[in-house]
């Protein structure tokens, strides 16, 4: 894949992949991948002009502030950075966003959310991890809840989700829990991705200009 650069893409950045290849592996069609490339170029050159999305650029895009760190944004970045080389390449960007497409499979969304919440990548969502995420959310929202209330919220959720009662949530328990509470993965779908070329017509104009070059 990576070595078969056509003449047309010779000037593209490292990690660039042909839209036709990405379209065949994701819910996006070719013109949507081209539109995503326009968005990718914008995000990946916002601070460091190297055509790769760095963590600060991701934070800037999410929060309008390159220094605003957030546990969940960090986790999303780490999952998008499939090669774990500290940047999000174009192919990684499209493949990862594909999970958020309304037509992506529910199974992929459930798995992605599980990996997101499995902070220490042990293959389980542990009680301490859930508590850490609740505390991060409270901190982010400037909400103050007593330690006892936080413990109760975590305990209650664990008693519902950890059906095997071993103190951790495995993938099967997570799947069952999400099927009881489908709203848990509502944020795993971005309706805008359904037809990104309609939602962002300016990207299409730009990508057509590129094609003519």
């Amino acid at each position: 894949m990576g070595c078969k650069y056509s003449k047309k893409v010779i000037n593209k950045v490292p990690g660039y992949e042909e839209p036709i290849v990405l379209a065949s592996q994701t819910p996006f069609n070719v013109s949507e991948v081209e539109a995503l490339y326009e968005l990718y170029k914008k995000l990946s050159n916002s601070i460091i002009a190297d055509g790769l999305i760095h963590r600060e650029e991701f934070q800037l895009a999410l929060f309008r502030n390159k220094n605003k760190r957030n546990l969940f944004a960090d986790r999303i970045f780490d999952l998008f950075d499939i090669k774990k080389n500290g940047v999000i390449e174009f192919g990684e960007f499209v493949r990862s966003l594909g999970v958020f497409h309304p037509d992506a499979s529910m199974e992929d969304k459930i798995k992605f959310a599980f990996r997101l919440y499995d902070l220490r990548q042990t293959g389980y969502i542990e009680r301490e991890e859930l508590k850490e995420m609740v505390l991060a959310l409270l901190h982010e929202s400037d909400l103050v809840l007593s330690v006892d209330i936080v413990e109760s919220i975590v305990d209650k959720t664990f008693s519902d989700a950890d059906t095997k009662g071993d103190g951790r949530i495995d993938q099967d328990e997570w799947k069952a829990f999400v099927s009881k509470h489908p709203s848990l993965i509502k944020n795993m779908t971005l309706p805008y991705l359904k037809d990104i070329t309609l939602a962002f017509p300016s990207f299409v104009v730009n990508s057509e200009v590129d094609d003519a070059d």
Partner: peptide
């Protein structure tokens, strides 16, 4: 809302850091 009845995952799913919509805003 009784906090103890909150689902912790519902709560954390409201994080701004999980809202990728901002990526598409100009």
């Amino acid at each position: 809302v009784e906090p103890v009845t909150m689902n912790a995952f519902e709560l954390i799913s409201t994080s701004q850091g999980l809202n990728l919509r901002s990526l598409f805003e100009k």
